[in-house]
Design a protein around this nucleic acid. Structure first.
Lengths: 197, 197
DNA sequence: CGTGGTTACATAACAGTGTTACTAAACCGT
DNA sequence: ACGGTTTAGTAACACTGTTATGTAACCACG
């Protein structure tokens, strides 16, 4: 009935997203063009527009891919009997993910590409990963580690601190890796101490 | 000896920077083009390239303009006998400046425009405003408000928290203004409590 | 009082971008 | 075999940053 697709719909989709991620990581947002990702995957710009509708659509998928990776990193954090340690482990996972995918991190939490800013639907995908943080905070409250001002406000504070530190570190403002480590541990020590019961 | 300048060198320079700021605030980074700022100031793109060398050069000046405004906001914060109150006032000034100039804030601390990222010289201009924060932290340490882990590490923690909260708020992730206010006060209450002696 | 030289400025061209018509190609039901 | 329908690639449009080219304005000098 119709001309068959050269590649599987899903594989082409993934190839384009991956190519975008590779270009973004290797050469930054300025090099990320529809022609480039199309050429990189051996197809034409039409693919981008039929699959994603838009360059923003492609960026949206890369954005979501970034959150999938973060969610996977969070899921890999074990749930021990020490909720505070779990919380700090989540922070480490957040940081490691940001360092491993700096450009995706910028795409997710910065605003590096003017063509795209997360819509409500995309922002909704953030929720699950944030829920993991809230859940861990809730366990800290339940076990009396933190004073109960609500798990959500606590999560916001930790999130703000983690994001702020990531921003500074990715910008190189936290010195070398040892210094950055020290800033991270000190910062979360202060904050969790202030949150403690 | 030569054709005289239509406008004063400095005034044209300022007009271009202001036009850039206006466009950035009104229509976002996507609308910020050399043709546009030139047209807006009644001149041609040549002015941008002869004065700033580059679009990145114009962005650089806007970036520095943003820091000048932040520095002015910091300078307007009075120095009372209560260093902790002064510190919180600095935080409020930081937040107010970010809310008043959201696109400049993105240019300064986000990475919204791919054509430009702050070079070392521009980054050096950040120092004075950060020094004001370090100084206030130092006074807190001196008066025994904070445990002495060093004024600089303390400033980094406060800076990270402030930037993290600003990012979340500008993204609309902190709810309406009342909720955002609550998050700000709670967060700095926790952090300063954790830093307290 | 011309006139040449030097500088300022504007226009237009170049390469590259996102985006979208248009056209060719390939399959499958008839 | 053939025709209809869907896919995919090409090329065009309007835009971007950037640069080269041409023109206009002034002043020193003859």
């Amino acid at each position: 009935m119709a001309r068959p697709r050269k590649r599987d719909y899903e594989t082409l989709r993934r190839e384009l997203i991956d190519a975008g991620g590779r270009i973004l990581a290797a050469e930054g947002p300025a090099a990320l063009s529809t022609r480039r990702v199309a050429q990189e995957t051996g197809t034409s710009t039409t693919a981008v527009y039929s699959l994603f509708g838009d360059k923003a659509g492609l960026l949206r998928e890369m954005f979501l891919e970034g959150f999938d990776r973060l969610a996977a990193a969070f899921a890999a954090v074990p749930r021990t009997g020490d909720p505070l340690a779990d919380l700090l482990a989540l922070g480490d996972a957040y940081r490691a993910n940001a360092r491993a995918n700096p450009h995706l991190y910028e795409l997710m939490f910065g605003r590096p590409v003017p063509e795209f800013q997360p819509d409500a639907a995309a922002a909704g995908r953030i929720q699950p990963t944030f829920d993991a943080l809230v859940e861990a905070c809730g366990r800290c409250v339940d076990q009396g580690v933190f004073t109960d001002i609500g798990a959500y406000p606590i999560a916001v504070q930790l999130n703000a601190m983690a994001h702020g530190l990531c921003s500074l570190e990715l910008r190189g403002a936290l010195g070398d890796e040892d210094e950055a480590n020290a800033h991270w541990t000190r910062s979360f020590a202060s904050l969790t101490r202030g949150l403690a019961a």
